[in-house]
């Protein structure tokens, strides 16, 4: 197989800056560098995890890829087509192939529409089905996510968080997409419900051959569902690895700190765990530190970190890291 064909989405040097308007005349003076020069590939059929703490730009990355935000700079190549520069009205076919599942099951469904209309809206917009066919399609979508057709005439507020999230999944599936961006789809749900949704996502992936970009802050869940994981810090990707590898052999100091901070639901293990406490606060994304953005909180930081931005280095086996420490070791 051609290697290029395996890659469904290619992100190259993606940047998304939000202007901060200040002053009397609201002249643009500064930019929040929410996503600052990130690149990665997602292979067909895989689940690519994107983790990081709040404010690191992971949600912005997802929203920029699906063109909810305009791209500041860089390319997003979906199945050979560069969609980063496309006009909104030309995106229709892209919108049929890429969908999104949102974080807040209460805010992501329009409370004035019935569940049937919510799930059926993509069908109306893309004129995929109408009349009886539309009805049948809605029922089958609801069935796919474990709801019954009686639910179609109900309103979202009558459902629990987990059920609402499944309605959101049904809506995303309506256009029969290839690629779904899951933006923290389970973080607002109860533990017992999280597993239901995660299992459903895994089943759907197998059945429909979907590719996922799974954005979350919960590393244990991301590790469970993802094939590969990218760790973001302050608008940049600091480490990418297969999920096993990332856990067994975290290389970037930030990844190490992040992993060590997660309490394990096993008293004996978690009491033995030695967490690396991160000092200080995340710097402002308006004025990120020069050089390595993590150096202000990194206990291994040295002179080079201040001046030079580390580039991604391949450690072999799909494991890439952006850290100057790797040069030092050699």
């Amino acid at each position: 197989m051609n290697k290029e064909k395996d890659v469904i989405i290619k992100v190259r040097n993606l940047k998304k800056y939000f202007p901060v308007k200040k002053g009397f005349l609201k002249r643009k003076v500064q930019y929040v560098k929410a996503v600052d020069d990130i690149s990665f590939d997602i292979k067909r059929g895989e689940t690519f995890g994107l983790v990081g703490e709040s404010g690191c730009g992971k949600t912005t990355t997802g929203r920029t890829i699906i063109r909810l935000y305009d791209v500041t700079d860089g390319d997003v190549i979906f199945d050979g087509t560069n969609i980063s520069t496309m006009k909104e009205k030309d995106l229709s076919s892209f919108r049929k192939r890429v969908q999104m599942i949102f974080q807040d099951p209460f805010a992501s469904l329009n409370s004035r529409m019935t569940v049937g209309d919510i799930v059926g809206e993509p069908l109306d917009i893309h004129k995929l089905a109408s009349g009886k066919e539309r009805q049948e399609r809605i029922y089958s979508l609801l069935k796919t996510v474990g709801l019954s057709k009686e639910h179609a005439s109900r309103y979202p507020h009558e459902f629990s968080g987990g059920q609402r999230q499944r309605i959101g999944i049904a809506r995303a599936l309506a256009v029969d997409p290839d690629f779904i961006i899951c933006d923290e789809p389970i973080s607002a749900l109860d533990v017992s419900i999280q597993a239901q949704v995660v299992n459903m996502l895994e089943d759907l992936q197998k059945e429909l051959g979907l590719t996922y970009l799974f954005i979350a802050h919960d590393l244990s869940m991301v590790r469970h569902i993802s094939d590969r994981i990218a760790v973001m810090y302050l608008g940049k990707i600091v480490e990418v690895a297969k999920s096993e590898e990332l856990y067994k052999n975290p290389t970037h100091p930030y990844t190490k700190a992040l992993l060590s901070a997660i309490p394990i639901p096993d008293p004996d293990v978690t009491h033995k765990r030695e967490s690396v406490t991160l000092e200080g606060e995340v710097p402002s994304p308006i004025n990120p530190p020069k050089g390595c953005t993590f150096r202000t909180r990194c206990k291994y930081a040295f002179e080079t970190c201040k001046n030079k931005e580390p580039s991604m280095k391949n450690l072999g086996g799909d494991h890439t890291v952006a850290c100057h420490l790797l040069d030092n070791k050699k």
Partner: peptide
């Protein structure tokens, strides 16, 4: 038991399917 089964463990190697608690409260 259901709670313990439904959460993934970061420290355990094998990737097992999660066992959710079905239904709603």
């Amino acid at each position: 038991m259901g709670l313990l089964k439904s959460i993934p463990r970061l420290d355990l190697g094998e990737k097992k399917r999660l066992i959710p608690i079905t239904g709603t409260p």
